[in-house]
């Protein structure tokens, strides 16, 4: 009987050795955070002061200037009166329901996250498109980033950097960056080989081919990736607030633990409104600037 017990129950690793592995790895991580925590924290310091400065800027600017500025930006980007009016009205409603400050906080961190994600993501996407080896390394990493439950890496990051904006920003970027990388890669790979050959035949350098042919032709796909990144960044607002990032996520958390459904819904809608504004404005901008591509668009 005892000999064939592995037939009935999975031959597991000894509990004690599993525990030993867990203890060793945890100990090593703690050792690491003790040793290098301050150094790593100081690397992020400039970013943290920028985040704080930007948030203070949005908070201390009178509300009507921010309101007009946002509406103006949306109009300039989209050239659509309808969208500008929608932006104006939804921001007014957000303010009227007492969510102005939280919305500004969320707006500031999400804006920074989105720009960082784009600035990091597009070069990685380009590198992936140019080399199959890079692609085969990066793709599984993106899979991990998108599926790994956020708390698994959040708490170690908190141990390293403390609670607040920087760990929140890292969590948001980890979750939100994959679409822009994937779709930049895909967009460039989908550019017609013959168009590239023609460009080469005209004697263009690799840099010219990239900036003059590949990126413009891939732009609709890249823009789709950017949109997804914005949406996913906003959906992480609540998770980020679980490690002390101020903003719309905090009232959401508070209302779900206390079951204040209306409060939760209101703040949820404010997040949705921000997401839709970001999305529509950037999409309209992209469509407008790519109008010359005609039927090349595939969105």
């Amino acid at each position: 009987m005892a000999d064939s017990s592995w037939l009935y129950s999975f031959p597991e690793m000894e509990r004690s050795s599993l525990r030993a592995i867990r203890k060793t790895l945890d100990g090593a991580y703690k050792e690491f955070s003790r040793e290098y925590g301050d150094l790593i924290e100081s690397i992020f310091d400039p970013l943290l002061s920028f985040l704080i400065w930007f948030e203070k800027l949005l908070l201390s600017t009178p509300w009507w200037i921010v309101l007009l500025l946002c509406t103006g930006l949306v109009y300039v980007a989209s050239r659509s009166v309808k969208l500008a009016v929608a932006c104006f009205v939804s921001l007014l409603l957000i303010g009227y329901f007492g969510m102005w400050e939280d919305t500004m906080r969320t707006l500031s961190i999400i804006t920074v996250c989105t720009f960082l994600a784009i600035a990091i993501g597009i070069p990685i996407g380009i590198a992936m498109a140019r080399s199959n080896r890079v692609q085969s390394v990066v793709t599984p990493m993106l899979d991990i980033m998108q599926t790994m439950p956020a708390f698994v890496y959040l708490i170690p990051v908190v141990m390293l950097l403390g609670i607040g904006k920087i760990p929140g920003l890292i969590a948001v970027i980890i979750y939100a960056i994959p679409p822009v990388i994937r779709l930049t890669n895909l967009g460039i790979r989908l550019v017609d080989k013959e168009v590239l050959e023609a460009a080469t035949a005209f004697g263009s350098s690799p840099w010219q081919r990239l900036t003059g042919v590949q990126l413009p032709l891939a732009m609709p796909t890249i823009m789709a990736g950017i949109n997804q990144t914005i949406m996913m960044a906003l959906s992480m607002v609540v998770i980020a607030s679980m490690i002390g990032v101020k903003g719309l996520g905090q009232p959401v958390l508070k209302s779900i633990t206390n079951q204040y459904f209306t409060l939760g819904l209101l703040n949820g809608f404010a997040i949705v409104a921000l997401a839709i504004l970001f999305d529509r404005a950037s999409q309209a901008y992209a469509k407008r600037t790519q109008a010359h591509l005609g039927d090349q668009k595939h969105d």
């Binding site: 607030s241 002390g244 958390l253």
Partner: peptide, 9 residues
């Protein structure tokens, strides 16, 4: 934000 955040700090 959360108990995990508090104990993490």
């Amino acid at each position: 934000g959360s108990a995990a955040g508090l104990s993490g700090s």
